[in-house]
C-alpha cells in the first residue's frame, strides 16, 4: 500500500493530506481534528459519523478517504459556532434533545439535509430522515421536537 495526497475541503477549509487506500473518510476527518465526527458502529447502522458529502448526508465510515478526494465536506462544527449556532444546534440545546451528546453531530447532519430539501417537514418526515441515526439516551421525542422547533424558527 502506498499513500496518496488527497484534497478535502472541510467546513470551507482546504486540506491536502497523505492518505492510505484503506483509510475511511471518518478516520481522515478525525485525524485532521474534526473530532465532532463520531466513531460509532463503523458499519452504517448508527449514523454518529454522518457528514454532508457534496451536500448529501452520508456515513463517513462507509466512504474511503480516496473516494472523497476533491469533495466538499460539512461536519456538525461547520453548521455553526458556539457564538453563532445554527438554528438546529440551538433548538437541540433548547429542547433538551442532547443527553450524552454522542449521536448529536450525526443527528444534526441528517436534520440539516432534511431541512435543506424539506423546510417544513412533518413529524413522519423527520422520523424518516433521522432513521439512520441511533440515540441511546433521550428516546427521540426531544430530538423530533428540536427539528420541528428549528424548522419553525427558520421559517420566521
Amino acid at each position: 500500500m502506498q499513500p496518496k495526497v488527497i484534497t478535502l475541503k472541510v467546513n470551507g477549509r482546504r486540506h491536502a493530506v497523505a492518505s492510505m487506500p484503506n483509510v475511511t473518510l471518518l478516520y481522515a476527518l478525525r485525524d485532521l481534528g474534526y473530532t465532532d465526527v463520531k466513531n460509532g458502529c463503523e458499519k452504517g447502522d448508527c449514523g454518529a459519523c454522518a457528514v454532508l458529502l457534496n451536500g448529501k448526508a452520508v456515513n463517513s465510515c462507509l466512504v474511503l478517504a480516496w473516494q472523497a478526494d476533491g469533495a466538499e465536506i460539512v461536519t456538525n462544527a461547520g453548521l455553526g459556532t458556539l457564538d453563532r449556532p445554527h438554528p438546529l444546534q440551538a433548538a437541540f440545546a433548547d429542547t433538551g434533545a442532547i443527553q450524552c451528546g454522542y449521536c448529536t453531530p450525526g443527528m444534526l447532519i441528517s436534520a440539516k439535509a432534511l431541512l435543506d430539501a424539506t423546510p417544513h417537514p412533518s413529524d413522519g418526515e423527520i422520523r424518516e430522515a433521522l432513521s439512520g441515526n441511533l440515540c441511546r439516551c433521550t428516546g427521540y421525542d426531544h430530538i423530533i421536537e428540536a427539528v420541528q422547533l428549528a424548522a419553525e424558527r427558520m421559517g420566521e
Binding site: 452504517g44 449514523g47 458529502l53 448526508a57 456515513n59 441528517s110 439535509a113
Partner: peptide, 9 residues
Amino acid sequence: FANPLVRNR
C-alpha cells in the same frame, strides 16, 4: 432500503 444515509451511497 436501509436508511437515508445508506441510500445516498
